Computed example of a mutant assay.
Amino acid sequence: MINVTKSLIRNQYLFLAYKLNPYIMKKILYSTDFSKNAGDAFPLALEIAKKHGAELHFLNVIDIPTAWDFPYTDDPLVMEEQALSSSEKGLEEFINTHYSNTGEDLRFFIHSFENTSVVGGILACIEKINPDLLVVGIKGSSKVRELLIGSTTKALLSESPVPVLAIPEESTVRDFNQVLYLSDIVEDDIPALNWLVKFVTPFDPEIEVTHVSTHFTKDGENMFHHKEELMEKVNYSHLKITSRLFDSINKGVFSLLSETKVDLLVMLEKEKKGFWGKLLHRDHVKQMEFRVSIPLLAIPQARFHSNS
C-alpha cells in the first residue's frame, strides 16, 4: 500500500509538472559507444529519467559498414542492415546489463544511426526525436586539458541545439545537492536559469550563480544590477548570487570548485564567446592541472532566441 501511495503521489506530481512546466524533461537522449566512460554515465542519466518520469532514448552511432567488417557479403545494403541490427542488439544488451527492473514504470527506446561522424549521428538523432537533454560520457583523465578537449565532446558542447550533460568517467555523482552556474552577465542568464531550475527541482539543490571576473570594478557593478534582475525573475528559494575576482578565468573556476563540493557545473554556451570558449582556449587549458570528476552541463544560448 505504501508503494502504491508513493506511486500515486509521484504520478500526480508529474502530471501537474507537465501541465505547468514547459521545460521539464520529457525525453532524454543518452548516447553510448559501449565504452566504459559511456557506461559510467548511464546511472546519472537513468536517475534523471526517474526523477522526471521521462522517456530514456538510447543512441549508438555506427560508421558506414565495409567488407572488412562483414567479409561474408559484398552487398552494401546487406552490410548496412547487418550493422544496424548488430547496433540495436548491442543497445538491448547494454540495457539488460546496466539496468535491473525494480518495478519502475520507465520507457526505453533504442536508436541506431549510420554516420561517418559521431557528432553528425548524434545531431541527426536530436533533429529526429527532439529530446530535452543530451547525456554523454567523457573519457577519464587526470588533467582537464585531456578531459575536456576531446573533439567529440567539444563539438557537441558548441553545436548541440539542446543542453548537453557531459559526465566524466571518474564521476560518482548520482544526485545534485550543490549546483554552480557560471554567469557571463548576459540577458539570457534569466531563461537559462529558469530552465536549470526546472531541470534540477526534483533534486532540490542549492544553486550558486557566480560571475568570475578579472576586472572587478566594472563587472562588479554590472553584476550588482544583474543580481537584482535575477532575484526578481528567477523563482527559486535556494538561489545564491555572487561575483568573485581572480587573476584568470580558469584559476577562478577551479578555485571555486575546490572550495565546495559541487555536483554540477553549468555554463551558458555562447558560440565560443562564453566560459566554455575561455576554458577550452588552448592557452588556458595548458595551465590546467585540476582533476575534474563532476558532470558538466552546457546550455545553448541559441535555445532562448535572444540577441544578448
Rank of each mutant, 00 (worst) to 15 (best):
H111C: 03
L106N: 10
T102A: 11
T73A: 08
N101I: 07
F109E: 15
S160Q: 05
D132W: 03
K143E: 15
E159R: 12
I122M: 12
Q82C: 10
F176R: 05
E92K: 14
I190F: 00
D105Y: 09
G90R: 03
L147I: 13
L148Q: 08
N177I: 06
R174V: 04
N194W: 09
V136C: 12
E170F: 07
W68C: 09
S87V: 01
E93D: 14
F70P: 00
I138A: 08
V164W: 02
C125S: 14
K198Q: 15
N60E: 05
F176N: 02
A155G: 06
V164Q: 04
V200I: 07
K139Y: 12
I64W: 02
V135W: 01
I190H: 07
T102W: 08
S158A: 11
A155R: 02
D74Q: 06
I129V: 11
G120A: 13
S158C: 06
T201H: 15
T172P: 03
T172E: 03
V164E: 00
I122Q: 03
F109K: 15
F70S: 07
L123R: 03
T66N: 04
A67M: 15
E81H: 13
K154A: 14
E127P: 08
E93G: 08
N60Q: 07
Y72I: 03
P76R: 05
N115H: 15
E127V: 09
S86L: 05
E114H: 11
A155W: 00
I95C: 09
I149R: 12
D105A: 13
V144H: 08
V162A: 04
T73C: 05
F70W: 11
S117D: 14
R107S: 15
P161H: 02
T172C: 04
L84P: 00
L59M: 08
S160F: 02
E159Y: 12
S141D: 13
L165I: 02
T153R: 08
I95M: 09
V119Y: 06
L91D: 02
E80Y: 11
D74L: 05
L156A: 01
S86N: 06
I95R: 11
N96D: 12
P202E: 10
L84N: 00
E88G: 06
V173C: 03
V118T: 13
A124T: 14
D75P: 00
F203A: 10
I126Y: 10
V186I: 05
N60H: 12
V61N: 01
L77H: 09
L148D: 00
A67F: 12
L196R: 07
F203S: 09
S151D: 05
G121F: 04
S100D: 14
E146D: 14
G121L: 04
V197F: 07
G140L: 09
E80V: 09
V144G: 15
N130G: 08
R107N: 14
T102C: 11
E169C: 06
L77P: 04
P76D: 00
V119M: 12
F108Q: 02
